[in-house]
Design a protein around this nucleic acid. Structure first.
Lengths: 252, 252
DNA sequence: GCTGCCGCCTTCCGCTGCGTGAGGGTCAAG
DNA sequence: CTTGACCCTCACGCAGCGGAAGGCGGCAGC
């Protein structure tokens, strides 16, 4: 059986132009032509095309595919191994990027500006071990972080907006409470601290009391978080820190 | 402070040519030039370059980066979300490719030819659900398969060769046993069946007796495996099948 | 003031893997 | 004999630079 370009293209899910291209560069020459100059592909050509598409999808450049297919001495397993490594590396890089994006999205919702250093985190420009270690230290490499990463990716724009709105709503009530002069370790403050914990659990990850107090400490230790709360109301970072601690002690 | 192209290039880890390119397309024009025509970059330019590199690493095309940076109304989070999806998709595809490669490597060591269908498995050309389901059925989605996949990727060429050699050695001894006329459910056949199980455990995954009998059945059911054993010695597939079953019943 | 060398300039061609025409011939059906 | 679906061969275009050619600018040492 002989096939025309169009038939082959449909069968192999490539464009006619692609077949022309493969012909041009000698990667896949049709086994014959009709009197009118039409390309005629036979079964063997189809087999070869399958192999070509296969290696293509594995990321091999066309020239290398030609080498593999035309050199019977070439070791296909070696090629596969090499490609396996390449792919693994690429997956790793992409995963780092995804993590960086999630981090960026998370920061955006709080309106926190990333430091240049953080912005460049995605680049492999420092020792990977050191980098991993730092990430471990900063985020604990914890289940919590993984949860939040996972969720971050799934949230729609509406989700983000609702999240932000709920956050702001809570912020307003907390600021109002401060205004009223209520003590940071009083029942109302503790109730709002608890609400804060629940908000995190709802949107991000299971926030235990332990984690919550850890967060509270970060709010006064990390200037970016401090700035965020201070912008809502001066003194809020410290006040919230105290309320969270009080709440954690009382409830657990 | 003002910097020359070279200085900027070194600092930002890009090539001079890249900066020229960014200038050409208007993505990053240096804030000034010296009398001699030298590009002069200032701090603001560096900031912009950082952002450019950041979005670049996240996979944005240059044109889109220009949009994001030049349009203050553009929603960066929306862009991030979109990019997150793109990256996740790409990771998924790459992971499928890796699985396909591992499958191919595994098949190679046994000298089994993949069917065209399998060769095209890596393409997303049929319903993903159906595909996943089929893979589930074929491989059980089991811990065993995951183990073997994981190991396949780590093996060096020498490992593969040793694996192959051990396999062949076992094959020779098993063929010799058949030759001797020993019964398939006799002690020697069972011993070699057990050795076979251990070989799999050593190289691939924890091969329980249950899994082993499953494999044995596949050896007579799947023509490609059958062909492999039949090539070693006619009747070997069925003989091995029986020996494995006998061994499993006796030992467990 | 001359030489040497490095860094900078612009210009231009090259690479991959095709997409997308333009401008025309061919084939089978009605 | 026409129509419409195919097919052909040029040939330019795309991103995102790499790299070379050919020529100044700037600074150090003689």
């Amino acid at each position: 059986m002989a096939y025309t370009v169009g038939q082959v293209a449909r069968a192999a899910r490539v464009t006619v132009r692609t077949l022309h291209h493969y012909d041009e560069i000698g990667l896949l020459r049709p086994s014959g032509r009709t009197a009118a100059g039409y390309r005629r592909y036979d079964e063997a050509d189809l087999d070869r095309l399958q192999l070509i598409r296969y290696y293509r999808e594995l990321g091999f450049p066309l020239e290398e595919i030609a080498e593999i297919l035309d050199d019977p001495d070439a070791d296909p397993v070696a090629h596969l191994r090499r490609q396996h490594e390449l792919l693994s590396g690429r997956i790793g890089k992409l995963q780092e990027m995804v993590a960086a994006i999630e981090h960026a999205m998370e920061a955006r919702t709080l309106g926190i500006q990333l430091t240049p250093e953080e912005r460049f985190e995605v680049f492999g420009d420092f020792d990977p071990d050191e980098h991993a270690e730092e990430a471990e230290q900063r985020w604990g490499g914890t289940e919590a972080y993984r949860q939040s990463q996972e969720r971050a990716g799934r949230y729609s724009k509406e989700d983000w907006l609702r999240n932000k709105a709920e956050n702001e709503e809570w912020g307003r009530r907390f600021a109002a409470l401060m205004e009223s002069g209520a003590p940071a370790d009083g029942p109302e403050a503790m109730a709002l601290a608890e609400e804060h914990r629940q908000l995190i659990t709802k949107w991000w990850y299971d926030c235990s009391y332990e984690i919550h107090t850890g967060l509270a400490d970060m709010y006064v230790a990390d200037p970016r978080f401090t700035a965020y709360f201070e912008a809502l109301r001066p003194g809020m970072a410290a006040y919230l820190n105290e309320a969270i601690h009080a709440n954690a002690i009382t409830r657990s």
